[in-house]
Every structure is written in C-alpha cells, then in structure tokens.
Design a protein around this nucleic acid. Structure first.
Lengths: 242, 242
DNA sequence: AGCCGACATTGACTCCGGTCAAAGACATGC
DNA sequence: GCATGTCTTTGACCGGAGTCAATGTCGGCT
C-alpha cells in the first residue's frame, strides 16, 4: 500500500506506520491532509513522561510505535497502571480540562500528537472519526472493567497467567509464533516492577509467581525480558482457580 | 419546566424524570418525539437482571430511577461489581454484539430502553447525542480507572472510606444534608455483600471495617441500611493511609 | 405473636501476599 | 577488567484480609 503525496515535505502521514489502523483511518486523503497541518510527530525515550496526572489536558494523539503506560497513583506513592497503549492506540482525554492519569513511555516510542482544542474541532468536523473514537472508548471501557475483575477478585497466580497470555497475544506479531499452540517467545516491554503495578501486586510476588510457573515447566525465562510460553494450555488453566 | 405534547398518549418522554439530564437532553422536541417511537418504559424489581454477560447485546437505554449494578464474574462464581448506575445514566453497550457485563437492579427501578440497532441509527442521526455519549463514555472510563487504583492499591479501610464518601455524594440529593460539613445520613442501596463486591473484599471485612469506623465515632449505623457520617474530615483522612 | 429467611456481626484461625533484607544477574561506562 | 547502578531472585518473617463457624438482628408473613 503506497501513499504518494503532493506535499511530501510536510505530509507526515505519508509514511505513517499506523495510517489505517489509527483513528485517522477513517479519513480520506484530503481530510488527512488538513489534520496533517495540526499534527506533529515526536519521539520519546523510554521512561519519559508525556502527560502528568493533574496537569492541564493539552494534547491528544496516536501512538505510532512503542508501548506507553497509563498510571494512577496515591498521595503516598503507590502506583497502579490502569492501561497500556500500543501502536495505533489513541492517547489523551478530549473534553476534559485536566488529565487524570500519567502517561509514560515504557519503551522508546514515537507518536503523532495534536493540540487538544483543535483536535476536538476536528472530531466535530469528521463524524466518522468521532464515531470511531466512540467505539474505541467503549472498547477501552470494557477492557478497564475486565481488569477490575482481575484486580479485585483474582489471586496472584491467576493475575500472572492472565497477564502473560495477554502479552503473548499483543506481542504476537513482533515476536515469533511457531505454531498456533506450540511454544512462543517474546520480550516483555515491562520490568517486574511495572508488571506488579499492572497487576496490583509487589515485585517480589511477581518474581515468585514467575519462578513457580517456570518450575512447573509452563514457561521458560531465557534471559533478559524474554519469556517463552511452553505450555499455553496449562497457562490458560491457571487463569481460573483450581 | 413544563413540556406539553400534542401526542400525550404515546409521548412517554413528557413526564420523564431525567428528561434533560439523560442523553436525550441533547435532542429538541421533534427529535425526541421520533426517538419516542422507538423507546419503551419498563419497571424492574430489585434483584431482577436486565442483561446477562455473554448474551447478545440487544438493548440500550436510560435509567430513570433506582440503582443498577454492572458486574463481571469468574467461572467459579466470584463477582466484581464494575460500576453502579444512577438515574440519568446510560445503560448498554452500543457497537458490540455481545454484552460483557451483567446488569441487575439493586433497588426497584424504572428505565427507558431502545433496541440496540435502531438506537445506533439514532446516534448517527443525532450528532449531538452521539457527542454527549462520547463524553459520558470518557467519564465512565475515567471512573473505571480510578476504581482500578482503589482495587489494586488500597487497603480495606481506605476502600471503605472511599466508598462511603462516594455514596454520600451520590445519595446526597435524596438523603438529607444539614450543613455542608455537618453530620449527614442516607440509606445505602447495597447490602454488605454487594459493597464487598464493589470493593473487592469479603462481607466479613466490610462489616468489620464498618464496626471499626463506628467505634472511632466517625460514622453511626442507625439501623437498616442507613449510615450517618458524623465526622467527614476523619473519613476523608482515611481515604489515604496514615 | 411467633416463625422464618436473609442479612449482619463477631470470633478464632489460616494463609496469601506484603515487608524487610540479602544476594545474584546484567548492562553500561570508565 | 572492574565498578556502578538497576533489575531480579530468594529467604525469613509478619500481618491484613480471607475462611469457617456461630450468633445476633431485622423485616415479612401466616
């Protein structure tokens, strides 16, 4: 699929990696060119924070590459990761003056952002895009609620199993999958501490559960951030208590 | 505010208690009359389930009176309440074929519902309503995420304090509030078991924490489902660990 | 009134996951 | 190579919340 632009110098969308998977996928070429004027690309380094909870909600955008975390925290520093953002996901909070969550890059990342107010105007002007955003927001809400069940009612073991299967699914494209049900290896974009913050556990508990799964021959930890799922069936079984 | 309708016999919106607070608030009288044709009012008794998780997503609607719960559960019967719905709140999941969560009445309730497909069409036809729904969905997402922090990172005591303050705010209108900061009494629409399901705790823990707050003179339990918040300051303090 | 079922409280005990602490791994830079 | 800092693993211990069980309270019904 090739997009040739008459305004190559400024057309940042032309080589967009998520051109048709992101919100912009709902726009035709002319509309895209207009939105183009508003947008800016930006690279962010791992660890960098894009949006701070409590700050004014200034920007919206799309994630092009990398993984971001969306986090909430208590006054005394406890943190809960309330969402992970992957390429083509929407970033930001339209229609609110203040951002409620902190957005931080877990890996080096690239994104395409717009000032919030003009972006809201663009939503009004492009019904299709607004409708797509509504659908995605509903999907995000479903996901958040599913995670509430996990946080409130699942054991550490179940949480870890859930998490690993979810990551396997999400990293599946970039990682390598031999056969649909055979062993599969991928790199986690999160540290143990960050996994703990996703699951509502501590680093130590995450580490112990990992070791337990390894001892049971269900996963292998080849080193670094890599994980191999050797027995997907068994892992799925641990998603629900015995 | 009085709405006189030329079609009094069928105009179920005329005496709608949430006429201008619900999604329909974005419609003018003609549009409302059209939507009217699609909608049906229904009363449901406490305990009745409107939508079952896993079933086809058939209806959408507005809550007129009462309180509903939105719940997820595990295969072995553990339940997590992922949201509470109050009058004027939107019910249902447009753009999905299957409902992911169970919706049940916690009190006797009345609602106004529409078949999902025609409702989706109505959203397309009435941009203002779609936009309002988008804004509400974002708000629901923020709320769900805030609750993730609570579920994942807060102690039983903090959860209870959070919950009571939230209920005080929500029941404030119907209950009685003497002075902004003085004692305030209201009825909880939930049993201890349901509170436990909201907070990711057990009945016993909820009960013990209630007793502890009562012993500390922060709340009183006059009987039935009633709660009196005698020392709001102290309750707010327990929202964050010592 | 008295019975019944649902809901709530309380107690005794257990255990999962948190806390504190000490070693390992591993990457990076000098 | 070695030093440094970050991340991970492992161990010992503790405590908050869950479990199991008994008792108490309330409202509804005949």
């Amino acid at each position: 699929m090739i997009y040739v632009s008459a305004m190559a110098l400024t057309d940042i969308c032309a080589d967009c990696a998520v051109r048709d998977r992101a919100l912009c996928g709902s726009l035709n070429d002319e509309e895209l060119a207009a939105l183009n004027m508003l947008g800016r690309r930006q690279k962010v380094a791992r660890g960098e924070t894009l949006i701070w909870a409590g700050d004014e909600s200034i920007i919206c955008g799309n994630l092009l590459s990398g993984v971001l975390k969306l986090a909430a925290s208590t006054a005394d520093g406890r943190e809960q990761i309330v969402g992970l953002l992957y390429p083509a996901d929407f970033i930001g909070r339209p229609y609110a003056d203040v951002a409620d969550f902190t957005v931080t890059a877990l890996t080096d990342a690239e994104l395409c952002f717009f000032p919030r107010k003009p972006f809201e105007q663009a939503l009004e002007d492009h019904i299709q895009m607004e409708r797509l955003l509504l659908q995605r927001t509903f999907a995000a809400l479903d996901e958040a609620r599913a995670r509430m069940l996990m946080l409130g009612r699942k054991s550490a073991e179940e949480k870890l199993a859930d998490f690993l299967l979810d990551m396997a699914r999400r990293m599946g494209s970039s990682g390598c999958r031999a056969t649909p049900d055979g062993p599969m290896t991928f790199d986690l974009p999160l540290t143990r501490g960050q996994i703990a913050d996703v699951l509502g556990l501590t680093i130590e508990t995450v580490s112990r559960q990992m070791t337990k799964l390894k001892a049971a021959g269900i996963i292998a930890l080849p080193g670094g951030r890599a994980v191999t799922i050797s027995d997907r069936q068994a892992l799925e079984a641990r998603t629900e208590a015995a």
